[in-house]
Design a protein around this nucleic acid. Sequence first.
DNA 1: GTTAGCACTCAAATTAGCAGACTGCCAACT
DNA 2: AGTTGGCAGTCTGCTAATTTGAGTGCTAAC
Lengths: 341, 341
Amino acid sequence: MKLSERKKKILQIVVDDYIETAVPVSSKNITDKYLKDVSSATVRSELSALEELGYLTQLHTSSGRVPSPEAYKLYVSELMVKDKLSAKELGYIKKIFTERSGNIEYIVKDAVKIISELTDYTTIGVPATGSDEQIEMIKLIRVKKNTALVIIVTQSRLYKDNYIELPEGMDEASINGASDFLTKIFGGKTLIEVTETAGDTLLQFEEYKEIFYKVIDALKAYVSQGDNVLLEGEDKILRHPEYTDIDRIKGFMSMVLSNEKMISILHDDGRDININVKIGSDQNPDGLPDGCSLVTATYSVHGHKLGTYGVIGPSRMDYQKVVAVLENVGRILENILSHEE
Amino acid sequence: MKLSERKKKILQIVVDDYIETAVPVSSKNITDKYLKDVSSATVRSELSALEELGYLTQLHTSSGRVPSPEAYKLYVSELMVKDKLSAKELGYIKKIFTERSGNIEYIVKDAVKIISELTDYTTIGVPATGSDEQIEMIKLIRVKKNTALVIIVTQSRLYKDNYIELPEGMDEASINGASDFLTKIFGGKTLIEVTETAGDTLLQFEEYKEIFYKVIDALKAYVSQGDNVLLEGEDKILRHPEYTDIDRIKGFMSMVLSNEKMISILHDDGRDININVKIGSDQNPDGLPDGCSLVTATYSVHGHKLGTYGVIGPSRMDYQKVVAVLENVGRILENILSHEE
DNA sequence: GTTAGCACTCAAATTAGCAGACTGCCAACT
DNA sequence: AGTTGGCAGTCTGCTAATTTGAGTGCTAAC
C-alpha cells in the first residue's frame, strides 16, 4: 500500500505535532498551524483514510487523531527529518569522554549518563561481556595472606573483580608461575572457550589443580552477564503526561528495574546494525508495553561489541533527537577508543 | 510534659493502626478493635487532648486522627514494641553473606539488596571510602604496553579501579621497584594523609617523579566519594497510598536519585551510633520532605566504618520491622567480617 | 477534488443532593 | 472527677443530571 505524498505529509504533521504536544491532533489544528492552503474538511477526509489504513486511531468519535504504532514505525523509517546535534552538544560529548582517558569501565557508564542527559529520557546500558575476545594475559596477585586477585586481560577489556583463596604457604614464585602457566595454556583462547573446555584441559596438571579450578570459577563469574545493567534517569519518564497513571508508572519502573527483563529486551536483536527502534504495542508482545518505545544502538570497536544502549520512553518520543544522540555518541566513542590503541 | 499511661497506650494504638491501614483512625475504630472496655466518647476526649499536645492532627473537623512527626518520634523511642526476625529471615541473611566469601564490594551491595527485600522499602547505601585506613601495599601491574593498574591494599579494603600511563619503555623490574618503593614510603599512612602530604614527600624522588604523581592522582580518585551510592527498590515507594500524587513521586525520585543529596542526608549524623531515625517535617528541614522518614544504620568492623545504610519511605513506615532488619543485618555482617580475618 | 455548513457524538467540567463517618459538646450517670 | 450516651454539626465522597465545547462525518454545492 503506497501512500500519496499528501497523506505522508499529513501523517508526518500528525506525528510531529503529537510528539510535541501530547494532545490528539485535529483537522483544524493541522490547517491552522501547518497546511494553510487546504481546508480542514479536506484534511478530515485524508485523516479518516489514514485511520482506515491503520496509521491513526481515535480515542472516541469526537476527538482528534493519535498515531498508531504503525505510524511511528513509518515515521522513523521514512517520514522523520533527521536531526543534527549542536556544536555545544557535540563538544560536551567529546569533553566527557576524553576526560576519562583509558578507563573503559567509566566510559561505558558515562555513555549512559550522556545519552540520558542529552535526550532527557530514561537510558539503559548493557555492557557486552566480551566473552568472545581472546585472552592476552591471566595474572594472580596476592593481596592478602591467602587471597589473590584474578586479573584477566583481553584485547579490549580488563577483568579484575574476582578473588580466589590461595593454598596455605604458596610463595610468590609459585603464584607467578601459576600466572604464566595459565596465560600460556589459555592465551589466545576466548573466555567462552575456556569456561566450556577448561575442565578437560586442566585435568592433566596435578600440581596447580586446586588453584586452577578456582580461577576457572572466577572466569565463569566474569562471563555471566550478572547484574551488569546501567540505568540512568529513571525518573525522567515522570515528566510525560502519559505517565500520570500510577499503575503505568509502576509497570514502567518494575520493568526498567528488572535486570533480566532489560537484558532480554535489549538483546534479542540478532543483527548488530546500528540503530534499532521498537515500538511497544499490544500485538507483537516483545515485552515492551503498549505506548512505550525503545531505541537501541550497539557500539563496537575493532569488531568487538562494546555494549548496547537503549533509550526508553513513551512512544510519543522525540525520535529525531534520540536517534541523533545515539548516532553521535556512538561515532565519537568509537573514534576515541580506536585512536587510543 | 508527661503523658498518662492511657494516653501513651492510645497514641501507640493510633500510630500502629495508621501504619497498618494508612487511614485516619477514629475513636470508634479504637474502641472496637483495641480498647473494648471504654467508650468511644472517652477515647475522643483523650484524642483531642493528644491533639492539643501536638501528637495528632486532623485533616478536617470530621475525620479521624493522623500521627504528627512528634508522635512518630515518641513512637520510635518509647512506644514501639521491638520486632524480632523469623528464623527464616535470619537464615536468609546469613546465607547470602556467606556465599560471597571475601568479596567486600559485593557484600556491601548485597546488604542493600537484603535490606530492601526484607523491609520492602527503598534502601540506600553509601560505602565508606576507607580513607582513614592505613595502606598496607601499593602495587602497579602492567596490563597493556604503556598502562598499569594501580592496586592499593588497606587493612579492610582493596582499591583497584584506576590506571596510570607508564613512561615509554619502562621495564618489569622498574615497575616492581616503583611498587615496592611506594609501599615503603606510604605504607602505614592513611589514604587521606597521603593525598594531603604526598606532594612534599615525593619532591625528592627525581627518578620516579613522573609516575608517582600519577599514582597520587589515582589515590585521590579513590578517596573522593564519587558516585558511589547504592540504591535498591526505588519503585517500592509506589506501593504506598500516600504516593499516588505524581508530584510527590517526582520529588521522592529526584531526591533518591541524586547522589549528592543522599550522601548529605546520610552523612550529617556525627555520632556513629547504630540506629538513627529521621522523620521528615516542614519544621526542621534536614532535606527530608514532609511525610517521609529515613532510618539509618552505620556498620563498622574493627573500628573501621564500612558504610551507612538507610531505609527511606513514608513516615507511616513499619519501624518495628525496619529497625529489626537493620540491627540484624548489621550484627550478622559484622560477625562474618570479623571472623574472616 | 475541494469546500462550507450543519447535525451528531462524546468527554470533561460543573452542580446539586444525599449518605456516611467523625467529632464536639452537653447532660446524665457512677 | 471521670465516664458515658445521645445528638447536632461538619466535612468528604459518591452519584446523577446538566451543560459546554471540541471535533468529526456527511452532504450538497462549487
